[in-house]
Design a protein around this nucleic acid. Structure first.
Lengths: 195, 195
DNA sequence: TATGTTCGTTAACAAAAGATAATAAGTGAA
DNA sequence: TTCACTTATTATCTTTTGTTAACGAACATA
């Protein structure tokens, strides 16, 4: 069983050719964060210039709508990265709260420290592009589901492509991520069972 | 009036400190593409590893849904970048067609040439990160509108934040971008006029 | 200018989603 | 185990959207 850091080191080697032994500058700034179920990692309104790798667990980013309900921007699990894009990209307090939907362990590093490392060790640069492009691709694919599919189709897609999340995350959060109410998701599930 | 290239050179200088005179390696590979209204730039099913800056005009990316209707991933105009993320990020033929919604002029460069330039002239690297992060931020904001707002609210947002597009683009494309039918958008507009 | 074509609106109906409330099932903590 | 709280389902009603079709206006082109 490979550890999270070993996985990251392997990816680093594939992308940059830097060996695990030479990866110290990059991993020196990394620290581990443990979160209990439902615990908040980044509260709405705060500034967090951290980038975190999910070693284990699940993180949901959500904001609160005008009507008081919450709206889920994304739910990510093991092997994915999270960060407050408001803080890092838009230089503003986070309009989203990031919290754990299961006991979660993160490997986090300060984005500005990371910037310095990229500047002083340009060999790591491909890693940054890899993650940015990966996230951009995933995010575009996410938009695609909203314009090409109905709520029921989006739920079906979720079940087939992210069955791990569907099994581990309460339906109300899945509904919120699909842009519908929990009541509506329950009806969709009922319709699906009937056929 | 600043030309498109001058604007890009100014941005380059802000981000990297490279002067316009020293920007030749970057701009040497750039070529100009003119498109008539409705003309296709990247057809669905093709591979295009080009990155293009919209000097003037409007580009829409769309795919065809199961029911035959088309679904719009995004509509971009002057000053924005477009590229086939299927080709460049996912290494697969484009599931989207990119076409002009007005007479359009693009400044395009081959992505692989660009990669070589970034490799041989690392000083340009901040430019790449700037655009990737800008696009990632915009794309996340786009998802946000789908989970936090109703179709009517999404249209209202579009009218206030992108009035240029609303005025220049036929409603049926706006509807498709909002994830609703043209009929439904027409009803939304009617409801809005009544209040 | 004439003439097809495309586009936006409206109508009618079916289907789905939102809002609210009640209830059952499941969960966690004392 | 008990009890409170959370979550999922179901019901009812209202609102909105999808679908299809018809119509007129706007548009482009011959």
């Amino acid at each position: 069983m490979m550890s999270a850091i070993e996985k990251l080191q392997e990816l680093l080697f594939e992308l940059t050719g830097v060996s695990a032994e030479d990866s110290l500058p990059l991993f020196a700034g990394v620290s581990m964060v443990d979160l209990g179920n439902t615990q908040t990692y980044i509260p709405m309104g705060s500034v967090s210039r951290k980038v975190a790798y999910i070693q284990s667990g699940i993180i949901r980013a959500y904001t609160v709508k005008a009507n008081g309900d919450d709206a889920t921007l994304f739910i990510r699990n093991e092997g994915q990265f999270i960060a407050s894009h408001d803080s890092i990209i838009f230089n503003q307090p986070s309009r989203f709260t990031y919290h754990a939907l299961a006991p979660t362990t993160l490997l986090e590093i300060d984005y500005d420290v990371l910037e310095e490392i990229f500047k002083s060790h340009p060999v790591y640069e491909p890693l940054r592009n890899f993650f940015l492009m990966k996230m951009l691709g995933e995010t575009l694919t996410h938009i695609e589901t909203f314009v090409t599919r109905s709520p029921e189709e989006r739920y079906r897609t979720l079940v087939t492509t992210q069955s791990d999340l569907v099994n581990r995350v309460p339906d109300k959060y899945l509904a919120s991520m699909l842009g519908i109410t929990p009541v509506s998701l329950s009806r969709i599930r009922k319709r699906m069972h009937q056929k």
